[in-house]
Nucleic acid binder design. Structure first.
Lengths: 175, 175
DNA sequence: GACGCTTGGTTAAAGTTTGAAACAAACCTA
DNA sequence: TAGGTTTGTTTCAAACTTTAACCAAGCGTC
């Protein structure tokens, strides 16, 4: 089958998109590293926990919510635990499971740094988009997500790798 | 100053965007690792070189084009050089500079794997977007890029770090 | 109740990224 | 033209990610 190359217009859009995401991810990582002493992914883990009723989540559930691998989460939680922002607790019912729990200190860090984070996102994105563009962004993003999540053709990751996975996500709900 | 949290609409857009980019990055990385034996970033470096008249670019220019740090580029080029896909060459005029040059083998790898890559991008993105949406995506991306590149307020990275630069993500929408 | 499969979580090793510092060549400028 | 600064690149250590095991607890079954 002959390749359906991208049209010039699609190419321009693709390049612009890649450039923007690279710059954005970097800016956010830098800001959070600066102000919160952790990369965006770690901030996202704390944020995810903060949204839970008891600020706790089983490791696997947390990994799914944050869309990262379990091993990556293990590493991150170990670090955050050392920092005193999270603590682990064994599950009573299922002795295999363990919870990650956001400590008061972790919550405090989140509350202290959320404003700066939001400000960064605003300054980079939403302060420059019209109302319609915000809608367009959501719609386009949703289309892409659907295309990728609906895709069961992808050879199912051996075991650790979740089918969708990764990089961070996670909002500071609370705030 | 009181924090200007994201509106519900902005939050939705932000989360959708983050989810999409996470999934997309992952899908592309997996596909390229599979078919070309390298992550997207490395493929991008080869692709950038292939567009040059002589398939060569000074390290710094390449870093800027690919929007990555110079140290990251050094590492990547070292690896690609080992693989025989790129070779270095010293610059005559400015003896501090060095070029990265795409070898014939590198070009061959690119040509062999480009169709699969394009197909992945199409399947995930462009096959599902209308003509207007492609335009919107470019426009929105450009706005973000301008916001981040034009920003000279950011405390200029000591040295290595470019003012804009890269990687992961995930914010706390305002909530 | 032993065998086998699945699930929750961690670990180890190899690969990659970061951030700061080191170097050397090129560029002022007095 | 000596001395100081900027520019182009690399290096190094520490932090992080990935992949592929690995272990132990639950689950089902014969």
């Amino acid at each position: 089958m002959t390749t359906r190359w991208l049209t010039p217009k699609e190419q321009r859009a693709w390049r612009a998109y890649m450039a923007a995401t690279n710059l954005l991810e970097d800016a956010i990582d830098r800001q959070l590293q600066q102000d919160a002493g952790m990369p965006h992914l770690y901030y996202g883990i704390l944020a995810n926990l903060s949204e839970e009723p008891e600020r706790k989540l089983r490791m696997t559930d947390l990994a799914q919510k944050a869309k990262i691998t379990r091993s990556r989460l293990t590493y991150a939680v170990t670090r955050l635990e050392k920092d005193g922002l999270i603590r682990r607790e064994d599950c009573q019912w299922d002795k295999r499971s363990s919870f990650a729990i956001l400590t008061d200190e972790g919550m405090a860090v989140l509350e202290r740094t959320a404003p700066g984070h939001v400000e960064t996102v605003r300054a980079a994105v939403f302060d420059h988009l019209s109302d319609e563009q915000v809608e367009q962004l959501e719609e386009i993003s949703s289309v892409i997500t659907r295309a990728l999540e609906g895709d069961e053709s992808a050879p199912h990751p051996p075991s650790d790798k979740l089918p969708w996975r990764r990089r961070s996500s996670s909002p500071c709900s609370g705030s």
